[in-house]
Nucleic acid binder design. Structure first.
Lengths: 169, 169
DNA sequence: GGAAAACAACACTTTATTGTAAAGTTTTAT
DNA sequence: ATAAAACTTTACAATAAAGTGTTGTTTTCC
């Protein structure tokens, strides 16, 4: 399991498209400008999202990218697994084998069950939040920002709210 | 957030010591042999665990490592954060800035809240499982294994059980 | 039909993570 | 005392991830 750069930046690009509105298109140069990323990198991220069928691409001079489905039917779990692969590597046990050909706990492994349960817990969390939730939260967040308050946290699905400030910026 | 190699292997080493029994010592060569890892690597992992005060080290010929506390007072959260650092990098926002000096969402960021909530969710999960839980599960798991059954999953704290097989081995 | 704008694919450089090697320090058994 | 066994530290090599550059293809506007 890992929340990587691909997840972080890819999610931002996806949100940028979603925030543009239903059916709206956004080009690579536009997204790169908006998000402060290079066009090459945005191109790479969007090609991943396209492979995962989260966005549609139109080529040519008037081309761009649009959301493949309505935001309320697109979960964070889909986005994250599309961008960064499955939460828990299916080859986990054959990847972390140490010096040997086969992990010494291959037959019977407690850590495996712990990580399995953890991955499910994360998957449940992520599948409970859709892009629509984020859009609505972001919408109000921007208005509140100008009034000097922040209630973004209260707009997310009940189970997914942060109880305290996690980032100190 | 990330479950890394350090987490995976470090946790195995910690469990090896815990499984040895209360107060028991285990040396680097012994753990390396048991876990199928190089002595160098085990040394590195154990030095992290020692810095986090999860284990005590005794130097010299009759030296080795022992658990610093009883297993029921040592959570997975402590182990994971000691080995791999905080679940969510405190510098997250200044790390993922793209091309610019400052992330374009620095002032007002929806993704930040989502990831904050996710990190809390994972922290809650990990803090609910102690080393003792794993030891007991592992104990029965080993007995069951010989009878051809596996109920390890049912021995973990209620919320932390995997509902289905996550690994296919 | 030609040029411009945009997506697509892939190789490549840079950077961070992983894991190893080696030299040093401490303690104990003899 | 001395040697062996074990922990400690730091520097280094191997590998994987992150991000960029280049070239090519598609479409549209004029």
């Amino acid at each position: 399991m890992r929340i990587t750069s691909l997840d972080e930046y890819g999610l931002r690009c996806l949100l940028a498209i979603a925030l543009k509105g239903p059916g709206a298109q956004l080009s690579i140069p536009e997204i790169a400008e908006m998000e402060g990323l290079s066009e090459s990198y945005v191109g790479k991220l969007l090609s991943l999202l396209k492979k995962g069928k989260l966005i549609n691409a139109v080529r040519g001079r008037a081309g761009g990218f649009s959301l493949a489905r309505s935001p309320d039917r697109m979960t964070l779990l889909e986005a994250v697994t599309t961008l960064g692969g499955p939460l828990l590597d299916p080859n986990h046990c054959s990847r972390y084998t140490g010096l040997l050909e086969k992990c010494v706990h291959f037959e019977c492994c407690s850590v495996r069950y712990i990580l399995g349960g953890l991955a499910e817990s994360v998957a449940e969390f992520l599948s409970q939040t859709t892009l629509k939730d984020i859009i609505e939260a972001d919408d109000l967040n921007n208005k509140d920002w100008q009034e000097g308050i922040s209630r973004t946290n209260n707009l997310l699905p009940e189970k997914n709210r942060a109880k305290q400030t996690v980032f100190k910026i």
